[in-house]
Computed example of a mutant assay.
Amino acid sequence: MGEVRIGISGWTYPAWRGDFYPPGLVQRRELEYASSRLTSIEINGSFYSLQRPSSYAKWRDETPDDFVFAVKGGRFITHLKRLREVEAPLANFFASGVLALGPKLGPVLWQLPEALEYDAGVLDAFARLLPRTTLEAAALARRHDDRLSGDRVHAETDADRPVRHALEFRSPSFASEEALAQLAAHDIAVVLADTAGRWPKVDRDTSDYRYVRLHGDRELYASGYGPAALDQWAERLRAWSVSQDAFVYFDNDVKGFAPHDAEALMERVGRSAD
Rank of each mutant, 00 (worst) to 15 (best):
E3T: 15
R5I: 00
R5E: 02
I6N: 00
S9E: 01
Y13E: 04
W16A: 06
R17S: 12
G18F: 06
F20L: 06
Y21R: 02
P23E: 13
G24C: 08
Q27V: 14
R29M: 09
R29A: 13
L31E: 04
Y33C: 01
Y33W: 10
A34Y: 01
S35F: 01
R37Y: 00
I41P: 03
I41E: 04
E42C: 03
E42D: 12
P53G: 08
S55E: 10
W59Q: 05
F67P: 06
G74Y: 01
F76R: 12
F76M: 10
E87T: 13
E87W: 02
N92V: 04
G97T: 04
L99E: 09
P107R: 06
P107K: 06
L112M: 13
P113R: 08
A115D: 15
D119Y: 09
G121D: 15
G121M: 10
V122S: 10
A125T: 14
R128Q: 15
L129F: 10
P131N: 11
E136K: 10
A139I: 13
L140G: 06
A141C: 08
S149K: 13
V153P: 09
H154P: 02
V163K: 03
E168F: 07
F174T: 13
S176V: 12
S176F: 11
S176G: 15
E178Y: 08
A179D: 13
A184L: 08
A184M: 07
H186C: 09
I188A: 05
A189R: 08
V191F: 07
L192M: 08
V202F: 07
D205C: 06
D208N: 14
D208V: 06
R210D: 06
G216P: 09
G216E: 04
L220K: 06
Y221E: 07
Y221D: 07
S223D: 11
S223T: 10
Y225R: 00
Y225E: 01
E235D: 15
E235V: 02
R236N: 00
R238I: 14
R238C: 11
S243M: 00
F247C: 02
Y249F: 15
D251R: 03
N252S: 09
V254W: 03
A258K: 02
H260I: 05
D261F: 00
A262K: 00
L265E: 03
A273G: 10
